[in-house]
Nucleic acid binder design. Structure first.
Lengths: 223, 223
DNA sequence: TGATAATTTGACCGGTTGGTAAACATTACA
DNA sequence: TGTAATGTTTACCAACCGGTCAAATTATCA
């Protein structure tokens, strides 16, 4: 037999699992840093420590590698949002969501950049995932937030744009890391910026979501 | 003479200015959509409506095209931050900065994506600009914000992370447009999402920056 | 151990890509 | 108008890139 990479229906060898693991790890490294088109199979092969034809023995094409990687990473990437709990304390839930997203930006920046690259270039490979599973999950959680607002537990606000704001502010620290470092300067070599960001963002969103009597727009017109 | 593309010291021909303009416009279109490595000179040539060697007559290399484009766009891209006025009303200044950044995300998404692509992939071509001019500008404006906070005009907060938050939330609507559209659904075909975003973000930041007596952290521990 | 299946690699192929050379066309201007 | 400078194109090249093939190597197990 000569096509074990098609061995999807059959039991996987130990060596198959190990090598596929190695390859996907290397693919994450390379794809997240260069985007799909910017990455070459040779690069991935070198990082994985194997020859190019060997990669292609496990994944028929570059696209297949990319897709397998996305499939594998997307689930865990959305976990924080799934944990969003309708029964919990609203402010605490939002706060903990922010914290978890920031931790992921710190601990899994490559995963963040993988998606950022993809979405930024028009999401040619994950359009279905965006319009399907992602949209459904967000719709569900947006409904939760809307209910909280309606019940007066948090300030009224557009739940979708709230989610976008949390996504963007937290992922910024992974996706635009070089810029953040450049602006903050050398002294922020450690992880301090993540703690500062956590303090700032938790405060921003929590204060911004407190229920208050007078609408904020009153402040607009002074001067 | 046969190297007019080196005609940097001499006076530029009318035709030179026109063609370079055409090329940079096409380069913006292509680079912003595909990133540097993902773009080909042929693509740019086709968009520009000229032959590949003709592009290379005006810009010696692909890199030179990219650099010229970045140089040209970076300045105007930073204009909103430059307008940030220390003498103005703090809340109004921040509010108007958010509005302007959102307008740019709506009207100049390609410029936003150009930088996003670049920074996301480690800013290999603009590292100097980040650590130089950008950092200096941000430092200056951060100082303004810090002074406002010290004077009690806005809540105390980390000015750098405030700027990061405004950048990320506003540019999100340009850089991750496909995702935003996918999540919001088809019905948001027009520019409505920008108006919704403006409402949400102005409220978020303005409320989050109001001076208040009790620190927000009090809310953390309930339940 | 030996035979069979699974894994790995070097050599190679066709298409693409950044860039060049030189001939050809057009413009500017004396 | 003539000519020199400027602008444009066709043909081409070498390197790269995704992918194939067949041979070689290693693992599996009766």
């Amino acid at each position: 037999m000569v096509l074990p990479r098609a061995a999807k229906t059959q039991r996987r060898t130990r060596i198959q699992e190990e090598k596929e693991e190695q390859i996907l790890e290397a693919a994450l490294e390379v794809f997240s840093a260069n985007g799909f088109r910017g990455s070459t199979i040779d690069q991935i092969a070198e990082v994985a420590g194997m020859s190019k034809p060997n990669l292609l023995y496990y994944f028929r094409t570059k696209e297949a590698m990319h897709r397998a990687l996305i499939d594998r990473v997307l689930d865990t990437w959305l976990d924080p949002l799934r944990e969003f709990n309708a029964e919990g304390n609203p402010v605490a839930e939002i706060r903990s969501y922010i914290r978890r997203k920031l931790e992921m930006a710190r601990d899994f920046p490559r995963e963040s950049r993988l998606f950022a690259n993809e979405v930024l270039q028009g999401a040619p490979h994950i359009e279905d995932e965006l319009k399907g599973p992602l949209k459904e999950l967000v719709d569900e959680k947006a409904e939760v937030i809307r209910a909280w607002a309606k019940a007066g537990k948090i300030a009224k606000c557009d739940p979708y744009h709230l989610i976008f704001a949390i996504w963007s502010t937290t992922q910024h620290y992974a996706d635009f890391d070089v810029q953040v470092r450049a602006v903050l300067g050398q002294e922020n070599a450690g992880d301090g910026r993540f703690e500062d960001a956590a303090r700032f963002l938790e405060r921003l969103f929590v204060d911004g979501l407190q229920v208050r009597e007078q609408p904020s727009s009153d402040y607009t017109e002074e001067i």
